[in-house]
């Protein structure tokens, strides 16, 4: 991969990460917030693989493997939490589930 590809991929992953942050901060639907977190993880994975290929070092790709495993665990637990919140409150909007904070 040449330098042009490196810079372009870094730019793309930075923009994707910022889109994910904007979604987490502005959306109300808990499932959409969760999907934006997955988007941020994907952007970071793109950065890791780009540097791994550019620097000829396999460790970046192994790191992406571990990130994917953690993301799978996180998705399972997070969706179970969303399910039990919906069972108790009959909504997934984060505004209406503000029992602890005012």
């Amino acid at each position: 991969m040449n330098e042009l590809g490196l810079h372009f991929n870094l730019l793309i992953s930075a923009i994707l990460f910022c889109i994910g942050v904007a979604g987490v901060l502005t959306r109300k639907n808990t499932i959409v917030i969760f999907m934006c977190i997955e988007l941020m993880l994907n952007a970071v994975n793109l950065t890791l693989v780009t540097f791994s290929v550019y620097l000829n070092n396999i460790n970046g790709q192994i790191f992406v493997f571990f990130v994917m495993a953690v993301a799978a665990a996180e998705a399972a637990v997070g969706l179970a939490i969303i399910l039990s919140v919906f069972r108790n409150f009959l909504t997934v909007e984060s505004d209406e589930v503000a029992e602890l904070a005012g």
């Binding site: 991969m1 040449n2 042009l4 590809g5 372009f8 991929n9 994707l16 889109i19 959409v32």
Partner: peptide
């Protein structure tokens, strides 16, 4: 090979990257 030259790989990279930005905006 010139490091700054635009290869056919870069063109595919641009297409995929631009489309992923569009669909990423669609998520939000």
């Amino acid at each position: 090979m010139n490091t700054e030259s635009l290869s056919i790989l870069n063109i595919f990279m641009f297409i995929l990257g631009g489309l992923s930005l569009v669909s990423g905006l669609g998520v939000v």
